[in-house]
Simulated assay, not measured.
Amino acid sequence: MQTPHQTPEAQRSVADAPPDNWVDRYAPEGWRPWLRLSRADRPIGTWLLLLPCWWGVGLAMIADRPTWRDLWIVIACALGAILMRGAGCTWNDITDRDIDARVSRTRSRPIPSGQVSVWGAVAWLVAQSLAGLVILLTLGKAAILLGVASLALVAIYPFAKRFTWWPQVFLGLAFNWGVLLAWAAHMGGIGLAPVIAYLAGIAWTVFYDTIYAHQDAEDDALIGVKSTARLFGTDSRRWLLRFGAGAVVGLALAVLAARPHGTALWLALAGVVGFAGHLAWQLKRFDMNDSAGCLRLFRANRDAGLVVALFLTLAGLV
């Protein structure tokens, strides 16, 4: 499914993929364009989609009690995050192929570089989505309904940067939906705690994706693509502080809404404190003119989210 204009350069790694990533090193050559299309060579996005799911499981364990089914929910969320992040990225690259071809960081992606045809990408999108559906069907009626509802957010997100200065909010709406879905998979419905955590996750997404978007701010201005990085401009640090603080306060309120007691309460709040410390560390090192530094900080948010997931899990188990 390679196009005739493909060049040797197009067969190499995508520009913003980590050096020596596993796809370029170990994947069979014929699979590499498809795995790149799913961003398998850049796993940070999968982590950022998965971690709110694990927050939802941890909050549900605190509010209710842990069961062996939670182990499957954790595994299903991981598998689902891999598949649906891949499907979402494929959809994003289909809709953005013309824009990607005009931005230096993204023109090496599989579609604009000629590694994958548009119709090939559509087929890959369908395959990943169907595999994700199979996993979703194991999580119960409430989770299934939420999973289906999330497709609207996924479909809209790639177009957000064309009509709003706040596409990062639309990304947050989609990327943090898992906290609701995972809670529902355990509890059979929605509660206050996951709704608050969902809002906190949206604030966190605006925080980290604004940092990420500063890599493309100049190119985005030239082609008319909107982002919070362009909107905030030189005032970005102050805006990042606001959204980071909102994420921290929201997570603390979500923990309290789950009504943990004793050791569970302190463990859960310790995770929030660790999360706050990590965001403060990022703010201290943020330089909007350092593209490489922005990418490093963006990737570091995996660790920030893992701190919350780990301590919520420990709190749910005590």
Rank of each mutant, 00 (worst) to 15 (best):
D220Q: 07
T210Q: 01
Y212C: 09
Y208M: 02
V248W: 04
V195K: 03
V179D: 01
V169T: 15
A221W: 09
V249F: 02
W166T: 15
V195R: 05
F159L: 15
A197P: 00
A221S: 13
N176V: 09
R259T: 07
I223M: 11
Y212A: 07
V179F: 01
F175S: 05
L145S: 03
A182P: 07
Y212F: 13
Q215S: 10
A217V: 13
H261I: 06
K226M: 15
A149N: 07
L241N: 05
A184P: 01
W166H: 15
T234M: 13
S227I: 11
P167M: 11
G250M: 05
R242E: 09
R242S: 11
L173I: 14
A197D: 02
A193I: 01
A143K: 03
R238Y: 12
Q168C: 06
W166Q: 15
L222I: 15
G244L: 10
R162F: 12
L151N: 05
W177Y: 13
T228C: 12
W165E: 13
A245C: 11
G201N: 05
I190P: 00
L240M: 05
I196E: 04
V195A: 11
L253K: 07
Y198K: 02
A200T: 04
G172W: 10
A221M: 14
A247F: 07
I202R: 02
T234F: 10
G233S: 10
A193K: 00
A143L: 09
L151A: 14
I156G: 04
G244T: 11
R242C: 12
W204N: 01
W239A: 10
G246I: 08
G188Q: 04
K226G: 14
L231D: 11
I144D: 07
A160T: 13
L171Q: 03
T210A: 03
A245G: 08
H186N: 10
L253Y: 05
G191F: 00
I144T: 08
